[in-house]
Design a protein around this nucleic acid. Sequence first.
DNA 1: TGTTAGCACTCGAGAGTCATGAGTGCTAAT
DNA 2: ATTAGCACTCATGACTCTCGAGTGCTAACA
Lengths: 346, 346
Amino acid sequence: MPLGERKKIILKAVVDDYIKNAEPVGSKALASKINLKLSSATLRNEMAELESMGYLEQPHTSAGRIPSNLGYRLYVDELMKAPKLSAKEIEVINSALKVRLMEIDRLIAEVGRAISRLTSYTSYAAAAMPSGARIRHIDILPIDRDTCVLVVVFSTNTVKNTVTKKPGEISDEKLHVIAAVMNTRLENAIPSVITTTLAIDIAAETGAPIAFVGFILDFVREEAEHLDERRIYVDGAAHLLAQPEYKDVEKAQRMLEYFSNKEAIAKLPEPDETGPMKILIGNENLSEELKDSSVVVASYDIGDGMKGLIGLVGPTRMDYSKAAAHLEYFTRRLGKLLGSGGKPEE
Amino acid sequence: MPLGERKKIILKAVVDDYIKNAEPVGSKALASKINLKLSSATLRNEMAELESMGYLEQPHTSAGRIPSNLGYRLYVDELMKAPKLSAKEIEVINSALKVRLMEIDRLIAEVGRAISRLTSYTSYAAAAMPSGARIRHIDILPIDRDTCVLVVVFSTNTVKNTVTKKPGEISDEKLHVIAAVMNTRLENAIPSVITTTLAIDIAAETGAPIAFVGFILDFVREEAEHLDERRIYVDGAAHLLAQPEYKDVEKAQRMLEYFSNKEAIAKLPEPDETGPMKILIGNENLSEELKDSSVVVASYDIGDGMKGLIGLVGPTRMDYSKAAAHLEYFTRRLGKLLGSGGKPEE
DNA sequence: TGTTAGCACTCGAGAGTCATGAGTGCTAAT
DNA sequence: ATTAGCACTCATGACTCTCGAGTGCTAACA
C-alpha cells in the first residue's frame, strides 16, 4: 500500500507540527499551516485514512492526531528534511572541537557534553575498545629512592600507569632488567598468560622480590581485563525533564535511574553493519525503559581499532532531523580529527 | 535563651518525625509518638513557643509544624542521635571498598556511586589537587619504529601519558637523550618555565626536530595546567526526584541542571579548617540553587598532598545522622586505605 | 468522484463548589 | 503547670459544570 503523495505531505506536516508543539494536531490547525489549500474536512478524511493505515494515532476521540511509531519511521526514512546545520551551529561545534587532543576519556566526555548542550537532548558517549588486547610494552621508571612509575602499553595503544613504592634496595639498573625480562616474556602476549608461576619465574630470573614482581604483573593483568569495559558518559539528563512527555516525575525518575545504572547503560544501542548511524524509534528499542523514547546513535573511528559511540535520547517526538544532523557533523569532524592520531605535526 | 530540656525533646521528636514522614507534624500525632506523657494541648503550647523562638515553622495556620533551618541547626549540633551504622551497612561499605586500588579518578567516582546508593542521596565526589605542582620526571618510551609513549610524572605523583608518533629516524638512544636533557632542565621546575625558547634550546642541544620537542613540552605544560582542575563526579541525581520536595518538575530540573554545570559544581561546599566534616543547612549554602537543600560534606586524605572530597545533597529534611554516619565511616576507611599509598605489599 | 460546508456528538481541561478533617489558639477547669 | 473542650482555619479531594477543540458523518457542490 504505497502512500499517495498528498498523504505523505500531510503526514510530514503532522509530524513536524507535533515535534514542534508536543500537542495533538487537529485538522483545522493543520489546514491553516499546510501549504496545500485543502479544507479541514478533507484533511479530516485523509487523517482518518492515515490513522487506519497505522501512521497516526488518536490519544482520545475528541483530540487531534499524533504520529505512531510507524509514522515516525516513515518520516525519518522518507519524509524529513535533509539534516542540515546552520552556519552558526557549525561555528559552535568547531569551536567546541578546538580543545586540544587530550586523554581519550576526557575527550569523549567533552564531546557528549557539547552535543547535549547543542541539541538539548540527553547524550551518551563511549569508546568501544576492541577486545582481546595484547601486551605491547612494560616499563618501570624510577622516580626517587623508593618510588617508581609502572607503565603498560597495550596493543590498542592504550597506556595505563600507576605510581608505586619500590623496595629501596632495587637499583635503577635492576628495574631496567626487570622490565626487560618482562618484555621478552610478555611482549605481544594475551594477559591471561600471567600466572603466579610466571611471577615466581621472573622473580627468580631477576632476583627481584616476589611481592614486587607480583604486584606489577597483577596490575598489568587487571588493567588488561578492565580495558574493554567501556565507560559511558551520560550528559544533559536534565534536558529530559524539560520535555513534556517526562513531566510525570515517576517516569522521569525511571529514566534517570536507567541512565545511572551501569549494567543497563552498557546495553545502550549502537550502530551496526548497516551504517554509521542508527535511529531507533519507541518500541524498536530493546531496553524496556527506552520503549517510549527514541535514540539516535552514531559511531566514528578513533583509530587503533577503537570505535567511538555517541547517541542522543529523547521522546519519540524528538527532532530526528536536528539530532541526526548534529551527530553526523560531529562524528565526521571527529573522525577526521582523530584519524591523524595526534601526531606531533598537528 | 537556653532551651529547656523538655523543649529539646519535643524539637528532636518533631525533627525526627518530619525527617521520616515529610509531613508537618501536629500536636496530636506527636503526643502518641513521644515518650513523655503529655497531652496534645501541652505540646501545642510548647510548639507555639518553639515557633516564636524560631525553631519551628507553620506552612499554614491549620497545619502541623515543620522545623526551620534554625531548628535543624540545633538538631544537628545538639540533639541528633550519635551517627551510627548498622553492622550490615558496614558490611556493605567494606565490600564496596574491596575493589582494588585503581586510578584515582575511577576510585573517586566509585566511592561517590557507592555512597549515593547506600544513603539514597545525591553524591558528589572530587579530588582536590594541591596547586603549584612541579615536574618531577619525564620519559619517552619507544614502542615501535614510529610510535612512542610520553610519560610525565608530577610532584603530586600524578602521572600523565600520551601515545604519539615519532619521526622514524629518531633512534631509541636518541629518545633517551632527549628525555635526559629535558629532565636536567625541567626537574622540579614549575610548568610555566616551558617556553618556545626552551624548546628551541633543547632541540638544538639534542639535534631532535623542533616539532617533536615542541609537542612534548606542550603536552607537559598543558597537562600541568589541567592538573588542579578538579573533576567532580555526581551520582544518584535520580534520588533527588524521589524526595517529595522535588516533586515539582521545574525545581528538580533546576537542581539537575545545577549539577551538570561545571562552573557551579566547582563551587560545591567543602570542609574547612573547622574539621573534616561540615553540614550546611538550607540557606547556609552559598549557591542560590542549594538554598533550600542541605549538604553534608567530608574530606579525607588521599596522600601526596591531595585531598578527597565527598558530599551528599538532599532536602533540608534529610537524615543528617545517617548521612554523617556514612560519610564519617567512608572517609575514615578511605583515609586508612589510601594512606598506605598502594604499596606492593598490599 | 473528489472536495467542502454544516452539524451533532465526544470528551479532556479547567473553574467553581462543597464537605471533610487535621490542626490550631484560646479559655476554663483541674 | 497541665489538660479538656470548643470554635475556627484552611488545604485537600471529590464532584459538578461549562467550554471548546476536534471528530465523524451527511449532504451539497464542482
